[in-house]
Amino acid sequence: MNAGLEFLRKLDDFAGLGRRYVLIREFTTNENYGKPPEQRSLDELMRLGVISLDKPPGPSSHEVVAWVKNLLGISKAGHGGTLESSTP
């Protein structure tokens, strides 16, 4: 069993996906290239990462994204689904 499959099972558990896997062919991966996602550096995480944030009631989803970008000093970030900011 490869390390990639182990990580994919973690993703499945996170999403509550109970599907099984079917192995077709065994391959080996060249250790000189690529990197398991869980070994990413902070810099690499900020280039391909996600934060499950608890949005507070005040700011809009858009403002929260701007705040995160500014805090981490990154140029690209986005949110998954607007959560309206307050009761009109």
């Binding site: 990462g49 949005k55 949110h79």
Partner: peptide
């Protein structure tokens, strides 16, 4: 409105 807001980096 509060709660889950995934932020992609």
């Amino acid at each position: 409105m509060t709660g889950v807001l995934p932020i992609a980096l």
